[in-house]
């Protein structure tokens, strides 16, 4: 790029183009949503299966995959940013910290207070998740994420009426609110790059 002066129209075009390119760069995170969606699905289905085969004492063991997933994802994101020398963004920072906060709260609730909140564990988890998905959608202005967040929020309240026997199954269904927008986000990026 040369250091020439520009006409007002060229200046405005350059600003718009640069800011838009920077925004697009950070939309490329569909695989993170797919990862969490699949992990939630695997954990919930494993718990559902163990619960149904009456392994009540160990049916919650698969939930240990969540902290492992969080560690893996943190290392992965950190390495990606370092490798590609990506800049820090305010949105990325806020979403990352909020993701950690929500995840940590859910793990504390799940591991230490599940007896207290009982059947409400699944709906509370889904409300947390819906809140995060909705905010992520607004931040990157991606409609499928916003819609998923709203749908999941409504679905979470409906799960209060589901028999406790099927709560893990409900969580597995809820995981699609991450997987589907993740796939759509990846597809949208691929189309933009063609």
């Amino acid at each position: 790029m040369k250091n020439s002066t520009l006409t007002p129209e060229e200046s405005l075009l350059l600003i718009t183009k640069t800011i838009e390119e920077m925004k697009q760069r950070f939309k490329n995170n569909g695989h993170i949503l797919i990862f969490w969606g699949l992990l939630t699905f695997v954990v919930a289905m494993s718990q559902f299966t163990l619960y149904n085969f009456e392994y009540y004492k160990i049916h919650w063991y698969p939930s240990f995959l969540y902290p492992l997933g969080a560690i893996y994802m943190t290392v992965y994101i950190w390495k990606e940013y370092k490798k590609k020398k990506l800049p820090k963004t305010l949105i990325g920072n806020i979403l990352g910290k909020m993701g950690w906060l929500i995840g940590l709260n859910f793990m504390i609730l799940g591991f230490f207070f599940s007896q207290k909140i009982g059947d409400a564990t699944a709906p509370v988890f889904l409300i947390f998740l819906a809140f995060f998905i909705f905010l992520a959608g607004i931040s990157i202005k991606f409609k499928p994420l916003i819609i998923s967040g709203v749908m999941l929020n409504l679905f979470a309240f409906a799960t209060f009426y589901v028999h406790d026997h099927y709560l893990y199954l409900v969580m597995a269904i809820g995981s699609f609110a991450l997987t589907i927008p993740g796939i759509l986000l990846n597809n949208a990026r691929r189309k933009e790059n063609v």
Partner: peptide, 23 residues
Amino acid sequence: LHSQLRLSIVSILMSVEEANFSF
């Protein structure tokens, strides 16, 4: 700001919190 390269640099920095030289 009214120069192509300086305006690009500032536009990039307006979109991020921090960026390094090579980026």
